[in-house]
C-alpha cells in the first residue's frame, strides 16, 4: 500500500512537471499498454507456477470460483444499481 502511494506520488510529480517532453506524455498510453501486458503475464506465471495454488484449485476450484463470481457480481450489481438510482445520469453520458 505504501509502495502504491509512493508510485502515485512519483508519477503525479513527474506529470505536474511542465517541461515534461511532449514525446513522453504522448507515448505514455502505449507504453502503459505494453507494461500492463507484461504485468498480467508475470502475474499469470506466478499463479500457474505455484504448486499450492494449482493443487488447491483442483480440490477447491468450484468453491473458489463460485465465491469469486458471486462476490464480484454482488459488488458490481449493487454499485451499479445505486449509480443508476441516485447518481445523476448527466455525467455518465460519455460512457
Amino acid at each position: 500500500m505504501l509502495l502504491i502511494i509512493l508510485a502515485l506520488a512519483v508519477g503525479f510529480i513527474f506529470g505536474s512537471w511542465r517541461k515534461l517532453p511532449q514525446a513522453v506524455a504522448s507515448r505514455a498510453g502505449s507504453i502503459m499498454r505494453l507494461g500492463l501486458v507484461v504485468l498480467l503475464f508475470a502475474m499469470g506465471v506466478s499463479i500457474g507456477s505455484d504448486p499450492q495454488v494449482i493443487g488447491a484449485l483442483s480440490r477447491l476450484g468450484v468453491q473458489a470460483v463460485g465465491m469469486a463470481v458471486i462476490s464480484t457480481a454482488g459488488s458490481a450489481l449493487l454499485a451499479h444499481l445505486v449509480e443508476r438510482l441516485f447518481i445523476e445520469r448527466g455525467e455518465d453520458v460519455e460512457s
Binding site: 502515485l8 508519477g11 502503459m32 506466478s46
Partner: peptide, 22 residues
Amino acid sequence: LDLLIQVALFALVAGVGMGLAR
C-alpha cells in the same frame, strides 16, 4: 518474478499518477 511484478506495478501506477496530474 515477484520483483518483476513489483517493478511493473510501480511503473504502471506511476503512469496512472502521471495521467491524474496531466
